[in-house]
């Protein structure tokens, strides 16, 4: 089926099998392999991308459901020569090891801080009506859909805290 995605600011026309997931459209058709396939079942978070500004597991979504949507992938956040502040914080705090879950962690981390700023509540808030703050537990709760088997969680929390602090 013909369709269009706006990926990292660029319009990309595609003709895809209706069974193709957004994840496979990015990886296999647009060759944006920064978005990773860890489980293909919405269990690990490695495929996290931002769709119209909100994070989703791209493996759980068919590409044709996103005709005309704006997709931001890890490649759209920054490049090796010009890192996004969250990418730079991950490098500084060693918030990764093998690197495979990392793009998903970073996309999620960027979205989590935005969700907190927007006042989206979470399970660990004492008062669901109060504005959430970027505390360690608040961020860890919201990041728990992104598995890191290398176990860089403690460092990822430090990286996020630095970026959250810098946001004032």
């Amino acid at each position: 089926m013909p369709m269009m995605l706006k990926v990292n600011g660029q319009k990309r026309s595609l003709s895809l099998d209706t069974r193709t997931t957004l994840l496979d459209a990015l990886r296999e058709h647009l060759h944006l392999t920064g978005t990773k396939k860890g489980c293909d079942h919405g269990q690990c978070g490695a495929c996290t991308v931002l769709v119209n500004g909100k994070r989703i597991n791209s493996c759980l979504s068919l590409a044709i459901m996103h005709d005309g949507d704006e997709i931001t992938t890890i490649e759209g956040l920054g490049t090796p020569d010009k890192l996004h502040p969250m990418q730079a914080a991950f490098v500084k705090h060693d918030g990764y090891q093998c690197g495979y879950c990392t793009p998903g962690q970073i996309c999620s981390a960027v979205a989590v801080l935005e969700e907190i700023a927007r006042g989206v509540p979470s399970h660990v808030q004492d008062d669901l009506t109060a504005a959430p703050r970027a505390t360690n537990m608040e961020m860890r709760e919201r990041m728990s859909g992104n598995i890191c088997r290398c176990g860089a969680y403690s460092n990822i929390a430090d990286a996020m805290a630095e970026v959250a602090g810098g946001m004032g």
Binding site: I74, E75, Y96, T102
Partner: peptide
């Protein structure tokens, strides 16, 4: 690090 955090390190597939 700059490769891994930007999705530009190339894995097997």
């Amino acid at each position: 690090g700059p490769l891994k955090t930007t999705g530009t390190a190339t894995y097997a597939y």
